[in-house]
């Protein structure tokens, strides 16, 4: 199995899970590792990594917001040339840090006093989705497909994965399609829908929950109107809001959706015929067993 993608080049990455994947998004971590193994991607965890600082850091202090990612990127450089990130928020913060070090002399000079910033700049930060599309390729994904899930999926990219395009350097920020391409290659039907990149309110989940409920309800409503079976996400914060807040939306807004939320890695893993237990299936709060049973997915 480990030679599946070996023909192109040995794919080795410094893996930065970020706080969520070691906690509330443990299912994203499990499915990422399983899929990576199936595709022959070698993941070496960044030694003793710390939090990237997330939104609280850049809201508070621009220096801290650049320093935390920079330190992690330097650590990543000790194990590989490219760094793999699954969390869109971490991805955004790492890319922003590189941009700010590059463009803002003040940050560059100050940080260079406390760390070798050029090392943070030399590593290439990649999102898992991008690696699967660019380095593995949809043909390979199609080859590995073991079972037809028969699912109709709304791919939800969220805001930070593609925005702003000058920082993320990924797909079309207004109508990204690369997650759709992957899932289509793995045998799923994806739908064009207008809320692919609308914000879920991520960081306000605890602090301004009512805003998040409104935003998430809108997203779920659009997915419902697109008549999908489930939503696929690529970010633990999106997952937390879309999955965990469905019960609150039912209670507070009286809207019942019950749309299962999957990480795209979980869907790929199932299509590859990997064991559901290894993909963290069933850890989400919205029940997905019923859907999977109805579709005969094992």
């Amino acid at each position: 199995m480990e030679t599946t993608a070996g023909s192109k080049k040995a794919l080795k990455f410094a893996y930065y899970p970020g706080c969520s994947l070691h906690a509330t998004a443990v299912d994203y971590n499990e499915s990422t590792l399983a899929v990576a193994e199936a595709l022959g991607i070698d993941l070496v965890e960044v030694p003793d990594w710390s939090c990237c600082g997330s939104t609280p850091a850049h809201c508070t202090d621009e220096l801290l917001a650049a320093a935390l990612p920079a330190k992690n990127m330097i650590a990543a450089g000790t194990v590989a040339d490219e760094m793999l990130v699954c969390c869109s928020a971490c991805f955004s913060r790492l890319k922003f840090a590189q941009k700010h070090i590059e463009e803002k002399e003040n940050i560059r000079t100050k940080l260079s006093k406390i760390m070798p910033v050029e090392q943070a700049q030399s590593i290439k930060v990649r999102h898992l989705l991008d690696v699967l599309v660019q380095d593995i390729g949809v043909e390979k994904i199609a080859e590995l497909k073991q079972q037809d899930l028969g699912l109709k999926v709304a791919c939800y990219y969220g805001c930070l994965l593609t925005r702003p395009p000058k920082v993320t350097e990924l797909d079309d920020a207004e109508d990204p399609c690369f997650m759709d391409d992957l899932l289509t290659a793995a045998g799923m039907e994806t739908v064009p829908w207008p809320y692919k990149t609308e914000c879920c309110g991520a960081s306000f989940s605890l602090t301004r929950t009512e805003i998040v409920l409104r935003l998430v309800a809108d997203i779920l409503q659009m997915a419902k109107e697109a008549e999908v079976d489930c939503i696929s996400v690529a970010c633990p914060l999106c997952h937390a809001n879309l999955d965990m807040r469905q019960s609150d939306i039912k209670k507070k807004l009286g809207l019942k959706y019950d749309i299962p939320i999957f990480y795209f890695t979980q869907l790929l893993g199932m299509a590859f015929g990997l064991e559901q237990g290894k993909l963290g299936i069933g850890r989400s709060l919205v029940d997905c067993k019923e859907l999977l049973a109805a579709k005969g997915i094992k």
């Binding site: 990594w49 710390s50 935390l68 850890r283």
Partner: peptide, 27 residues
């Protein structure tokens, strides 16, 4: 569901500590 930990993980403490301290100093 296995998504909430009861105890913190200290692996990244050294790195974060250093950064907070250094940033405070250069500021």
């Amino acid at each position: 569901k296995g998504r909430l930990k009861l105890f913190p993980n200290f692996t990244g403490r050294k790195m974060a500590n250093t950064v907070f301290k250094d940033v405070k100093r250069i500021k």
